[in-house]
Simulated assay, not measured.
Amino acid sequence: MKQYLLLGQTLSFSGNPLLAPWENVTHHNSAGGVLITGDRITAVDNADTQKRAHPDATIVDYGDALIHAGFVDAHMHYPQTRMIASWGKQLIDWLNTYTFPEESRFGDRAYADAVAADTLDLALAHGTTTLTSFCTIHPESVDAFFGAAAQRNMAVVAGKTCMDRNAPDTLVDTVKSAYDDSKALLEKWHGKGRATYAITPRFSPTSTPDQLQTLGDLWAENPDCLMQTHLSEQLPEIAWVKDLYPTSRDYLDTYETHGLLGAKGLYGHSIYLEPREIDRLAEVGAAVVHCPTSNTFIGSGLCDVLGLARAGVAMGLATDTGGGSSFSMLRTMAAAYEIGQLR
């Protein structure tokens, strides 16, 4: 099998720099080598060591450039690509003013195909090779995204966004269609090539308890899938959840009660968590996803990343396009640093 040896600077980590002294777990090699066998990275080591071990590998010398794995964007909305940086609103008004009208267009497969292609090409141009995306309620939007990713051999996670209340008529499904559509799309795409399906209730305010329960049932039937949603993004949202779910202990409980809390769960934002919520997320091995450019752009707040790490909660990092204002994971990392400083 053909081998390539990429030469340049490399950066690697042997631990979590949020939990250990960064200088002990961060490793920079100014003369590194990355071995590619077929289409897989098979070794990362010193360049001279690699050359001796693989004398027949084709050398690709990048000089002093940094060779880095592709970035992973753990939470974004590809249907919001064309409304990125829509300004002047916070979450609920922002959804009603900008997001829902745009997402209503994704029943048109040609439109969905065009936006999916634009999104993935923009991601690749910024060094992002893996995306976890919400689609819309339209199955066409899911087929468009997975199809575009397959054409580019990209690893992606996505799912039909389910909403059966508190959304425009053009974006509301039902308990039954949420289950049936999600199940059909899951069977069509999950595990095919580099595709992973995520069962996707948008968030508790736009799903009835019955819809959350049927999606929880679907997850129990397909536990190898992921589940993605939103959690505790803004204070007015949390107050709304309390009104809609008056018997729930907290926001996370609206998911937990309906089978939507688990180790393969991804909970976007998670800024204003109660102690019980933090403990439960850590206990089950669920992950929160930090979206720093979105959290500042639409005025959500400053996520306690260090506190969550110390509590044992797994975390991802994400652009949250288009609430987030950039496709660049480097810009997203800079924003995460800035929020850490502000906290």
Rank of each mutant, 00 (worst) to 15 (best):
I271E: 06
A334S: 05
R165A: 12
W219C: 01
A314S: 14
N96H: 12
W240L: 15
R52T: 06
K2V: 09
P275S: 14
T119Y: 13
W22L: 11
T254K: 03
D243L: 13
L120F: 06
T26C: 09
A117M: 07
A114E: 11
L226P: 00
G324A: 09
Q213D: 08
K188T: 15
R276D: 15
D224N: 13
L186S: 06
M83E: 01
Y251F: 12
Q341G: 03
A123H: 10
R280E: 09
G33V: 01
S12E: 13
K188I: 08
A150R: 14
M154Y: 10
H28N: 09
Y78I: 02
G323S: 15
T97N: 08
E277A: 12
A53E: 12
F106L: 13
T257C: 01
M227C: 09
A287P: 00
L120D: 02
I41G: 07
W219E: 00
V288N: 05
P205W: 00
W87Y: 14
V172G: 02
T206A: 09
M163Y: 07
N222P: 03
A198C: 14
R165H: 11
D118N: 10
S86Q: 06
T161G: 13
H126L: 04
G307W: 12
G191C: 12
W87L: 13
P223I: 01
C225P: 00
A150D: 10
L5G: 05
P21Y: 07
G216A: 04
N295Q: 12
S204P: 07
P17G: 11
Y98I: 05
F297E: 06
A123V: 02
D250T: 03
D181V: 11
V284F: 04
Y337W: 13
T130F: 04
K192T: 13
A239T: 11
L317E: 03
D224Q: 14
A158R: 05
Q151A: 15
D121S: 13
T257V: 04
A158W: 02
L273E: 08
F327H: 07
G262I: 04
N153G: 11
E237D: 10
G268W: 02
F145W: 06
H126S: 08
L6I: 15
V289E: 07
A57M: 03
T37K: 07
R82N: 13
T130R: 11
F146A: 04
W219G: 01
G324N: 09
T208A: 02
M227Y: 01
L244S: 10
M76T: 15
A220N: 08
A112L: 10
T296E: 14
A149T: 11
A263S: 14
L95F: 11
G299F: 10
T161D: 01
H28M: 11
